[in-house]
Design a protein around this nucleic acid. Structure first.
Lengths: 251, 251
DNA sequence: GAGTGGTCTAGACCACGTG
DNA sequence: ACGTGGTCTAGACCACTCC
């Protein structure tokens, strides 16, 4: 791809109401994903790129920033900006079971085991950061992929946020989205252990079998805990992919 | 903490050669970690803060940016910037086994099983992105915590980067650091399974026992794969904590 | 020395939430 | 209506690499 073609392709549209840095960044991401720019290729200097596509250098830097963070570009002071190559998709992205399964090419499903409002347990109160006397809604179901049992999942959410069991259909997250309760980050603790007998039955497993246990706490933008989910996955069918980064500050 | 005290505490030192936005960001992080600012507290408006500590608003925004990304601050357009509260430490941070164990309060150790240069296997060649005929260095050892076996780990690195087994003492990463081979990100795949018999012996486990399998590929800044490590942890002693975020782009 | 990314400034306009 | 964060500009200086 010639520099001229790159300038044309990256020039933002005045009709698009998206921020300039997002337009430029998204287009560049697409170009690299398409293979038109390969690993090791040098980007034009920030100043030249800014001039040619009619934005300021600060805007270019902000557009680059996200791609550098994602490992798609790398920058070297005094040298330049270079393409690192396509990135494999599986980020550590917070997604629902349904999204996760669809991304893996399975059709997600659920079998409800329990769905009601009740008194919280001490563990749950601690994890949710609520009073031990508070009430919570507990949602327990078998999660399936292409009809095959994949995990047993128990989600617990403070009744303060959600207190109508009937409002929850197959997608817990859809209800949360409706109510503007969108988690922005989550912590997951991942363990491995042997399956209990009743789990083995629910998941159609022999004994002994290994279980991948995932405990997730998801957080609202202001830092409060929205919900806690305990999931037990069939280890023979599921793996978990995480992306790690080096601690931000050099030295 | 009064606004006046905050302004004083955040005013960067002219003698410090660190970038202003890092000085401000680090100080603010410390202040919040110390508890002087609590969850829900409002930060002064960006413009006022910039004025009072003598930097530009852009610099304040860049200082805030990192803390917002870390979930320590949250920003709402039209409303303000607020403290989200202290963050639990366990980020998804790329760290060596030794760092990981020390962070958990254990004293790390190693027992070498194998350390030599050899022909690569097809799987390894694929994972490392090198020719199937290339040579690699393979490092296999038992990892211990307080003297107790914790994991069996096999690290594989292209002989192009490292080809002297004797150069590797107890810290693989220390050697890499010496040679300026610093990974910036890594992908981990985490699985659970039953222990093999020989593993159970090495790790002092009964059979059947569960194993937490972690495969890590770490990447250099330019996107090349530096090394691949296969680790099998005792599930009864180890868990893995990951942090997830929502996909960056809204909608 | 020329060119690069890294940092920083002092403005500006916008969309939006809050009082 | 006002103040907030979100975006954007057109400059500037620095430290570093080598196009």
């Amino acid at each position: 791809m010639t520099p001229e073609q790159l300038f044309t392709a990256l020039t933002p549209s005045p009709h698009d109401r998206k921020p300039l840095y997002l337009q430029v960044g998204d287009r560049l991401r697409d170009i690299i994903a398409s293979g038109a720019l390969k690993r090791g290729d040098a980007m034009p200097p920030e100043r030249e790129l800014a001039d040619r596509i009619g934005v300021s250098r600060v805007t270019i830097r902000k557009a680059f920033e996200e791609l550098v963070g994602a490992g798609i570009l790398s920058q070297k002071p005094g040298a330049g900006t270079f393409v690192s190559g396509q990135i494999e998709q599986p980020f550590s992205i917070l997604q629902s079971f349904s999204e996760d399964m669809r991304a893996r090419g399975y059709e997600p499903g659920s079998i409800w085991l329990d769905k009601h409002v009740t008194r919280t347990s001490p563990d749950e109160a601690m994890a949710l950061g609520i009073a031990p006397t508070a009430r919570v809604m507990r949602l327990k179901r078998i999660r399936t992929a292409n009809g095959q049992p994949m995990a047993v999942e128990t989600a617990v959410i403070s009744a303060h946020y959600l207190d109508d069991p009937d409002s929850v259909g197959n997608s817990f997250y859809a209800v949360l989205r409706q109510r503007d309760l969108l988690p922005v980050r989550a912590l997951q603790r991942i363990r491995s252990r042997l399956a209990f007998v009743h789990e083995a039955e629910l998941l159609h497993l022999d004994t002994p079998s290994a279980i991948l246990d995932i405990e997730r706490r998801s957080f609202l933008p202001d830092g409060r805990v929205l919900e806690v989910t305990f999931s037990s996955y069939r280890a023979d069918l599921y793996d978990f992919v995480a992306e790690l980064r080096t601690a931000g500050i050099p030295e």
